[in-house]
Design a protein around this nucleic acid. Structure first.
Lengths: 250, 250
DNA sequence: CTGTTCTGTGTACGTTATACGCAGTACTAG
DNA sequence: CTAGTACTGCGTATAACGTACACAGAACAG
């Protein structure tokens, strides 16, 4: 059977929920799914997602390469399981804080998880969220909007928008940090290098608006570390606030 | 030399700007960089980015695998060049339309480019935008904000926020379309299947907010095709509008 | 006790990117 | 005109990858 217990749950998601049937016929399993997933996470944390090969994970777990395939259908499934395990559960959020404070806390927590484990940002997303911890984060985000008079559909859209934003912003931040560490320089210097590059390439006659940005010196120095994140977050929350006010008014 | 003409321009970006020096000593090149890039684009458009291997592109270009390396430093560079060629130049936007209409048109155009060539969404971003067409799109976006009283720094942040949003939303849309085509079903049906899956997995006692969304039937049917995109876009532009009003007021 | 079924493992295969060396070509210096 | 040089396209070789498959042994059901 492709699916477990005929419930119609896709195999990879069933694995994430621990629904794998392991009828007790053969020999005792010497490994555990969780052990393998943790081994994968250790490899990814140490040397990045590119280092996560089946043989490397198997070595870390103390088994042969092919043993992993008794627990995992394919590498993609392993990555999905690693991802789900790595993000863990969302933090508790004060339910009386108001939607804006709650969403802000949620977004910051999400970002911290990503930046603490940058490899999670490189795991290709394979579909709509359906693993336990992903749904837990979704639920926590939705809970922040529970007291508003938004339609359920709108709440969901907002959480999707926000989680997309946080993930993407974390990716950019992680990219920059990686680039900085690769050349062993400072963030300020990296930005300045980029600014100089654009100054070289951009002809203000051809790209006038971009030319004005460069001329204004925006790219001469780095922002405060999290300034970019806060800026986008505040714009989005402002927009959400407008909708909430609108729904409350009508 | 790693760099061209000692200008300090990284090799891959120099290639994108056509700054490669090809001193006329050896035999006449039988291929052109552009021809190779176009061959790569044909392969990607036909069979997706996973089909873009050096040997496949070489076959499409009518040359041997290793010949490509005379024009391209590595596969990553080829992908970057393909990406830049594929997005092309942004459309002209009515400069008197006002910032909101202009940004909306810009975002839609950007989204169309991505969805017309979904493989571009799978090209890993390798750093801040520095290729000619990327900068052209950035300039077009910034131009939409030219008449506002925002600081240049803010304009840039807004364009980055918006382009991130469009790209991400296009990725999700492309993912869904791919999933739908893979199982050869309708979009409505795919959403409903996902809804049923969540209904099965989500315990409303453990995930109350998510339970309410599901109970409200949000996932029983698909939205209008572009509804999700419009929703997020409007929220972001609302937030931007608030900032513009604030800056104009003070 | 005798299947039956699951375990871990070794081997093998097909792909991938790309480093390297070679033969031939078009230009430049003399 | 000739020698040298730098570049071309190409074939081969290498290391790594995911994973299909077959097999030996272990634990259970009857």
């Amino acid at each position: 059977m492709e699916l477990d217990s005929g419930t119609g749950v896709p195999a990879n998601i069933a694995a994430a929920w621990g629904l794998r049937e392991r009828p007790g016929k053969g020999p005792k399993p010497g490994l555990t799914l969780d052990g393998i997933v943790q081994a994968g996470i250790r490899v990814a944390a140490a040397d990045g997602i590119a280092a996560v090969s089946m043989s490397r994970v198997a070595a870390e777990a103390g088994a042969s390469t092919m043993a992993l395939y008794r627990y995992v259908r394919a590498k993609d499934e392993l990555l999905e399981l690693m991802m789900d395990a790595a993000i863990g559960d969302p933090p508790a959020i004060d339910p009386d804080a108001g939607w804006r404070a709650a969403l802000t806390a949620w977004a910051w927590a999400c970002r911290e998880v990503y930046l603490a484990q940058p490899w999670t940002l490189r795991v290709p997303i394979s579909g709509p969220p359906a693993t336990p911890h992903q749904l837990a984060w979704m639920d926590a985000g939705l809970a922040a909007l529970a007291d508003t008079s938004l339609r359920e559909e709108e709440k969901l859209s907002i959480i999707l928008l926000l989680s997309m934003y946080v993930r993407n912003e974390a990716m950019v931040a992680a990219d920059m940090q990686a680039a900085v560490q690769a050349v062993d320089t400072s963030l300020d210097e990296a930005i300045a290098t980029y600014g100089k590059l654009l100054k070289l390439l951009v002809d203000p006659a051809r790209f006038p608006a971009l030319g004005r940005v460069i001329a204004a010196g925006v790219l001469d120095r780095a922002d405060e570390p999290h300034e970019e994140f806060v800026f986008g977050l505040e714009r989005i929350l402002d927009g959400v606030g407008l909708l909430i006010a609108q729904r409350a008014g009508s």
